[in-house]
Design a protein around this nucleic acid. Sequence first.
DNA 1: GCCGTTTTCGGCCCGACTGTTTTCAGTCG
Length: 575
Amino acid sequence: MGPVKNFELARLFYEMAALLEVKSESVFRVRAYQRAAQTLETLTGDVEAVAARRALTTLPGIGRDLAARIAEYLGTGRIAQLETLRAELPPKFLTLLEIRGLGPRTAKLLYDRLGVDSVERLEELCRSGEILTVPGIRAKTCENILKGIALFKAGRSRTLLSAARQVAAQTVEALCAHGGVERIEVAGSLRRLRETVKDIDLLVTSTDPARVVKTLVTLPAVIEVLAHGDTKAAVRHRDGLQIDLRVVEPEAFGAALQYFTGSKDHNVRLREMARRRGLSISEYGVFDEKTGARVAGATEEDVYAAVGLPWIPPELRESGGEIEAAREGRLPALVTAAAIRGDLHAHTDWSDGHQPLERLIEAAQGRGYEYIIVSDHSKSATMAGGLTIDELRAQIQKIHELQPRFKIRILTGTECDILADGAMDFPDEVLAELDVVLASVHSRFRQTRAEMTGRIVRALENPHVDILAHPTGRLIGSRDPYEVDLEAVFAAARRHGKAVEINASPDRLDLDDVHARRAAELGIPIAVNTDTHYLSNLDNLELGLGVARRAWIGPAQVLNARPLEALLAWTRRAS
DNA sequence: GCCGTTTTCGGCCCGACTGTTTTCAGTCG
C-alpha cells in the first residue's frame, strides 16, 4: 500500500522534531519538521511516486534539505541525521514527552540533572522527593507530574468519536439546564469528525460567564478540575475525556469557533495568510495590524472572507490542501445525509443482526430511503450465524413475499466471506441470484501481506462481487488492519469496476479518511454503509459520512447516493 | 528548515493558565 511509506516518514519526521525540540533547537526548525510530517501524513498519493518524479520540493513545507532526507530514507531505509539525534538521548526518553504537563524543557532538565531516562525512573524520583532538588521544581509540579504519570499508565488511547459525541451532548445539555448559556457549540476535532478525539471543546456566549464556568467545574461527571479561570475552564470527565470550555463575546464567536475548531495546523496556515495581508487573527477576531481595528469575527464566514477565502467545511480543515483549494475556488461539494438514498450493508436476525427482517425494512423506509439491502453473513461465518445456501434462498423468497407490502425497494444481498484462498463462500450461481454482493474478510487475519492482497484481489475478480466491505478489517483501538497492499486492491477494484466501502460502525470506520480519499481519487465508487446489527445502528450513517467528507467525497462519488435504477444498472453491469 | 502579491533574507500564529516566579517560562490548545 502506497501510503505506508508516507506514514513511516511522517512518524520519523515527528520524532526528529521532538528530538530537536529537546535539544532546544530553533522552534522554527522544529516546526518545519512537524509541518513536513503533517504534509506526509495527509498526502493521498504515494511519496515514492512523488520522489520518482523528482517533485518532493513541490510539496508544502518540504524544501531542499527535507527532500534529501526523504530520498535518503526511500533509498537506504535510514536517515543518518535521525540516528545521530537518537544516539544523544536514552532510547525511551521521548516517551517522557507523552506525559501531560511534562514538556521538552522540563524533561531535558530532569535528564541533565538527575539522569531521568524513563517514566519508571521519573516516578521513583517523584515519590522519593528527590526531584525537588532540581531548581524550578516544587511540590506542586511534582504532584502534577505524578498525576500525568497516572494518566499515562491508565492508557493513552483516544476516545472513539461516537462515545465523545455522547459525552459532549450530555455536557451541553447539562450546561444549558443551569443557566447563563446563550449559545453553545462543539468545536475541536469533534466538529471536524475525526475518528477518535482526545478532548471536547465547548464554546459558549453567555450573560453570566462565571456561572457557566462554575456549572462545568461542579458537574457530577467531572472528576478533576485542570484549569479554572474567568472565561476558560478545563476538566476531566469520569470517562477520561478532557472537556475545555471557553466563554466568548458574541461579536467574536465566529473567530473563536474557527480558532477552536482547528486543526492547529490549518489555523497556523490561515494566520500566516492573514499576516501577509497586514491582518492578525486570534480567537477574538481578525484585526488590522496598523489600526488595531476589528475587521471580522462574528461569523466563521467573515473570518475566512477577511483573508480572501470561502468558508471551509470543518471536516477539511486538516491542512491537506484545503486552503489551496479554497483559494483556487475548487473546494468540493461534500456528501450530506440528504444525498443518501439507501443502505447497502445491514443484518437481520437471520444471521447476527438483532431485528427481524420486517423491522429493518420499516426502519429504513421510515428514514425515507429508496432502498435497503438485506446482507446477512454467508455460511462459513459460523460465529455470526451465517446462512446456508438453502437459508439464503428462503430469505430471498421471503423478501419477494414482503416486497409488495413496502414502498421501499428491498435489495437481496449477502455479506459473503472471502475464503482464505480468495474464493467466495457461495458459488457463483447463488451469488448471481442476488441484487448486491458484499465481499469481506472475517477469518485468517494473519496471512502474509502477499497472501492477503492476492486473496482480496481474487475476490474482486469474481464478476458477481459488487462491494468490498470493511477493506482493512481494523477495529479502532483493538485490532490493527490486516497486512494488505491497498494500492493493489484499489487497482483491482478499478480494473473490475467494483466499489469499496466506508463502514460506519463506530469502531471500524473502514476505509479511513486518507484511504477513502485515495480510492475516490482513483474513481472507485464509495459505498457509505452502516453494517447495521441493531436498528439504532442506522444512525451511524453520520459517522460514515464524516469519514467520506473528511475524504473530500461528494455525492457523485457515493454509490448509495445513486437513485435505485442507476444503482441496479450498475450492479447488473458486465464485469 | 521553509518561504516570497511587502522579502532570496529575515521573518516565521496567538493567547490563557499554572507554578514559580518579583517579571516570566513552560505547557497547552
